Amino acid sequence: MAKTVFYSFHYEQDVHRVQLVRNVNALEGQPLLNSQDWEQVRRRGDQAIKNWIHDQMAYKRAVIVLIGKYTASRPWVIYEIEKAWADKKPLLGVRIHGLSSLGSVDAAGSDPFAKAEGVGSVPIFDPTIRDWSGNIDSKATYNKLRDNLEAWSSQGVTRRSW
């Protein structure tokens, strides 16, 4: 059976890219909420969002932050990073800006782990491939992600207990 992970990401900006990651089928992630289901959770307030995160992350073996252009600015992503660190879950990042979202790629985003309180150095893997002219090749990027995601998922770091 595939390794189970919790994917942390910026929903509005990157949901199409996250679908591509899930379609790799190398790992089993939490069910993705559609925008209506997410709004239902969000309308019930911050505690409902925290409860959803806790429930979805509870039995996952690792947390992978899928890093797009604006991921580091999202408060719930930072919360998920801090929770994973506190729970001593293996934590890592994978850059997804080079995957196509409705036909376009994005610029790389900043390191979200640097914004999380008390989190140490966390590995970030970048499958982005550029062509001869320096443009991102989204198909080659997807292929590199597909070929490496499972191996990368076992290289997360945890908070030390000392």
Results as ranks from 00 to 15, higher is better:
residue 53 I to Q: 03
residue 133 S to M: 06
residue 10 H to M: 02
residue 82 E to R: 00
residue 162 W to P: 03
residue 71 T to S: 02
residue 132 W to C: 01
residue 119 V to S: 03
residue 4 T to C: 00
residue 69 K to T: 14
residue 25 N to Q: 15
residue 28 E to G: 04
residue 38 W to M: 13
residue 41 V to W: 13
residue 49 I to V: 15
residue 87 D to V: 01
residue 72 A to G: 04
residue 22 R to H: 09
residue 54 H to Q: 12
residue 127 P to T: 11
residue 160 R to F: 00
residue 120 G to I: 09
residue 110 S to A: 11
residue 144 K to Q: 07
residue 139 K to S: 10
residue 54 H to P: 00
residue 140 A to K: 10
residue 161 S to Y: 09
residue 64 I to L: 10
residue 65 V to C: 11
residue 9 F to K: 05
residue 37 D to K: 15
residue 62 A to S: 15
residue 162 W to G: 07
residue 150 E to L: 10
residue 58 A to E: 14
residue 103 G to K: 08
residue 119 V to Y: 08
residue 123 P to Q: 05
residue 107 A to Y: 14
residue 24 V to F: 09
residue 151 A to V: 08
residue 18 V to K: 03
residue 31 P to N: 12
residue 147 D to H: 06
residue 119 V to R: 08
residue 83 K to F: 13
residue 95 R to T: 12
residue 95 R to N: 09
residue 75 P to T: 01
residue 91 L to A: 10
residue 58 A to D: 11
residue 156 G to D: 08
residue 7 Y to V: 03
residue 84 A to T: 05
residue 33 L to A: 06
residue 108 A to Y: 08
residue 149 L to K: 09
residue 1 M to P: 06
residue 115 K to W: 11
residue 98 G to N: 06
residue 20 L to Y: 04
residue 162 W to Y: 08
residue 126 D to F: 11
residue 136 I to Q: 01
